[in-house]
Design a protein around this nucleic acid. Structure first.
Lengths: 149, 149
DNA sequence: CGTTAATACTTGCAATCTGCAAGTTTATTG
DNA sequence: CAATAAACTTGCAGATTGCAAGTATTAACG
């Protein structure tokens, strides 16, 4: 029987490759990091830079530059917060939204392809299990905890 | 209900952070990539560089340099294949083996901590599901397929 | 055989990514 | 009205990445 770590290691390696492959949308060629960034902005409501950086576990200075390049690519808006001018709120441009959606579709398509090798029941069980696992990690006091989600 | 992609995105993000945090062993401060590399060498039997690079989905030139640094850190042995002198076989030094084992323990400890927020049955179901999912991805014809596991 | 092609791996760039230290601007605290 | 803190930016300097081009060895073919 494999250890939990083995199972997760292999799964994350594969999902990592998947993630890399799913980042090319039309002309845009995003890195996996940038894709995560878009994803996170998309699902939050006008988050501040600090917030997103913390969620993703990246240094704020690195994050600052990543945002700059996404703004330059016209995928992300960086608007000053009206109530606190230290803060910048992030949102997706229409183009960014489209890219994020496309990536989402691609990822889901790939996943569904993999799911086609499993029974419907197995897929349901898998998804329910992962949901529980995510919640469990959220409750954990360890490194993976600060990431809300 | 979350899409599969959402569930996997959050899980992999957390596991990524976990992976980062688990790479410091004593004096050694490995990157997540290097940790994966050690893991893969550990579980294969004297693999060639080509083999491991392909499994991990990294460019062979990048991989070559990564191996160089791990050799320099005295964690990996690079021995010429006796039957084909183009090939180098990789193995872990005793020190590398120790580091790999320590990382493994740390990861499993973290995972078990998370599991403590789930019932025994839920954990079993999760692990069995992931195992099935890994097999399904192995059968898939997509990007995540070439990675044997 | 001997030449050509293929394989395994290495090095030269050049671009990107990363994080610490140090800075700017704005808000809060005493 | 200082002094402190918070949010973000820039200056390095080091690490990572991949393509192009190289070396060395083996396989393939005429």
């Amino acid at each position: 029987m494999e250890t939990p770590r083995e199972l997760f290691q292999i799964m994350t390696r594969r999902l990592g490759l998947l993630n890399k492959d799913c980042c090319s949308v039309g002309g845009c060629n995003l890195s996996a990091t940038q894709s995560h960034l878009l994803y996170e902005i998309d699902r939050s409501h006008n988050p501040s830079m600090q917030q997103v950086a913390e969620t993703l576990g990246t240094d704020i200075t690195t994050f600052s530059r990543q945002v700059q390049s996404l703004v330059k690519m016209n995928l992300v808006n960086k608007t000053p917060d009206p109530t606190d001018r230290r803060i910048y709120n992030l949102s997706l441009t229409p183009e960014g939204k489209m890219v994020a959606t496309t990536i989402d579709h691609q990822m889901n398509a790939y996943l569904n392809e993999a799911f086609s090798h499993m029974s419907e029941f197995e897929v349901e069980t898998l998804l329910r299990s992962i949901k529980l696992f995510n919640e469990a990690m959220g409750k954990s006091s360890n490194c993976c905890a600060p990431v809300k989600g």
